[in-house]
Computed example of a mutant assay.
Amino acid sequence: MKFLEPLIEGRLIRRYKRFLADVRLPDGKEVVAHCPNTGSMRNCQPENARVWLSESNNSKRKLKYTWELVEARPGALACVNTARPNAQAKHAIEAGVIPELGGYSQCRSEVRYGEEKSRIDLLLSGHDSEPDAWVEVKNVTLAEGAQGYFPDAVTERGQKHLRELIAQVANGDRAVLLFVVNHTGIEEVQPADHIDPKYGQLLRQAVEAGVEVIAYKAALMGVDGNPSARLDLIDAVPVNLEA
């Protein structure tokens, strides 16, 4: 899985109003890019960081550039576009990269479910011996050293998703929380109790109720010197639930 067009490198000037970022291109031109990330992007927006933008030819778009990647710290890349993880996860599942989710013949996206009127990211069905699997995908970019954390801000929506997953297990199906680790410097994932302790507590309750939690890391390779950056999930990453 890769970007359809070559990415454009620049330098981050600032992110503001959550969804906007000023970027300086190599020719000195300053552009405003869309920042498709509702989180805090903690540790992913250092001043003057190298960033990579995708460019749209859609004349109806207000902003032609989208912020995709950032060099979060020297030698470590992060994908900050939260529209990417669902596609990364689906591609990896269908390619057989995630054995825990193998054997299903059908993968549907954004299926309505639950008492709290949610949409599941991926619904897997058609397995010979396993019940349907309801897969919630979360993007992990907050790194402190080699430790990755989720969430990077208090998330009531994330808490709702965990309650919905618990209900699916009670209904006899599988429920899976899949962390897509979109930061090359992260070697382990754990709940960010120092940011959202309620989420961490509920995540551990969900595991006790039978919700499965797995994490897979993206390669994010091919950026430096290669215009066709890839987003493939390649390696499992440990999930540490110790408080």
Results as ranks from 00 to 15, higher is better:
G10W: 11
R11Q: 03
R15N: 12
F19D: 11
D27W: 03
V31W: 03
S40R: 09
R42P: 10
P46M: 12
E47N: 10
V51R: 02
L53D: 05
E55H: 06
N58Y: 09
S59N: 12
K60P: 07
K62L: 14
Y65F: 13
T66E: 12
L69T: 12
E71S: 02
A72Y: 11
P74M: 01
L77W: 06
A78P: 06
V80T: 14
A87P: 05
H91C: 05
H91N: 04
H91Q: 06
P99D: 05
Y104C: 02
R108V: 12
V111G: 01
V111I: 06
E116H: 13
D121I: 03
H127S: 02
S129A: 13
P131E: 03
V135C: 04
K138A: 07
V140C: 00
L142K: 06
L142W: 14
G145K: 01
Y149D: 13
Q159E: 14
L162T: 13
E164M: 00
A192I: 10
K198T: 15
Y199P: 06
Y199K: 08
Y199H: 07
A206M: 01
G210I: 11
V211N: 07
V211C: 06
V213P: 04
D224A: 15
N226Q: 08
L231G: 00
D232S: 08
L233A: 04
V239G: 05
E242S: 14
